[in-house]
């Protein structure tokens, strides 16, 4: 008799178990996803660091004798782009690959709540984004001598912004075919970089684009990150917080529904 027939390796005769606690599922999934994604972390950090340095150093060439306000906008804009790029580009790319390889199907068969899968994966990505964000901070320190402040608003705003972008990117990757989601996320990234007031002030955009950006997530994220990290000169606006929270809720719901979708 094989040894596993002696040990109770499975539950045949017992009734189907009750759902396991949500937080336990999230913690276990995070641990598992963390070990699966561990090998991606170095590449992940390097891409983000290059992105942050490109904006901070490269975009500065566009400005002749930048003012303190412009420097703050550029540096905080680079940090914001770091958050957006992880959530809207790198995350969906990896999800798209996992979708093609059938890994997503495997994860969706697990006996855990759909919301636990969404929260665990997004949290792992958010945590993985932190070293890259630090690289952006170091780049700003070297180039402009700018050091971000850490306050309670930073601890609320950065995770909220990260999770919103993760949920958005994940929902796009789950709902659309990999090639379509790849194009859409690149378009989003370009929009955030060039057509949203992230690295430059809003008044440089045409009025209609300013109005549109007030309801899109990128400007609120940029405003909140700037307010949270350079808090002696900017106060977080409740409107930005509200718009971002609504986007977070919409993206989370879309993501959970996408994961719960049965073929």
């Amino acid at each position: 008799m094989p040894s596993s027939m002696r040990t109770d390796t499975s539950r045949a005769a017992q009734p189907v178990g009750a759902p396991t606690p949500w937080l336990r599922d999230v913690a276990l999934l995070m641990r598992w996803s963390g070990s699966r994604y561990r090998y991606l972390l170095p590449a992940f950090t390097v891409i983000q660091a290059v992105f942050a340095v490109a904006i901070i150093v490269g975009f500065a060439f566009l400005l002749r004798n930048p003012t303190a306000a412009e420097v703050q906008q550029l540096a905080s804009g680079a940090w914001t782009m770091g958050i957006i790029s992880v959530g809207l580009v790198i995350g969906p790319q990896i999800i798209g690959t996992e979708k093609s390889e059938g890994v997503l199907d495997y994860i969706h068969h697990l006996p855990v709540r759909r919301s636990a899968i969404v929260v665990a994966d997004s949290s792992v990505w958010a945590a993985a984004a932190l070293p890259g964000l630090c690289a952006g901070v170091i780049a700003a320190r070297i180039r402009f001598g700018l050091v971000p402040t850490l306050s309670w608003t930073t601890l609320v705003v950065v995770p909220l912004a990260l999770m919103t972008c993760m949920f958005l990117g994940s929902a796009i990757a789950h709902l659309l075919r990999p090639n379509v989601s790849g194009v859409l996320t690149q378009v989003c990234l370009l929009f955030a970089l060039l057509f949203a007031p992230v690295t430059f002030p809003a008044d440089r955009l045409p009025l209609w684009l300013q109005a549109a950006n007030a309801y899109l997530p990128f400007e609120p994220i940029a405003n909140l990150v700037r307010a949270a990290t350079i808090s002696d000169s900017h106060e977080p606006a409740m409107r930005d917080l509200l718009v971002l929270t609504v986007w977070c809720a919409i993206a989370y719901t879309a993501d959970v529904r996408a994961v719960a979708h049965r073929r």
């Binding site: 178990g17 759902p19 090998y39 059938g102 890994v103 495997y106 068969h109 697990l110 006996p111």
Partner: peptide, 22 residues
């Protein structure tokens, strides 16, 4: 109740189980 289905049935699918890095 698909959640109950997932608790009642465990499946080894045709596609690869996620093993990279694990």
């Amino acid at each position: 109740d698909p959640a109950l289905a997932r608790r009642a049935c465990s499946i080894m699918g045709q596609s690869a189980a996620p093993m990279r890095g694990v």
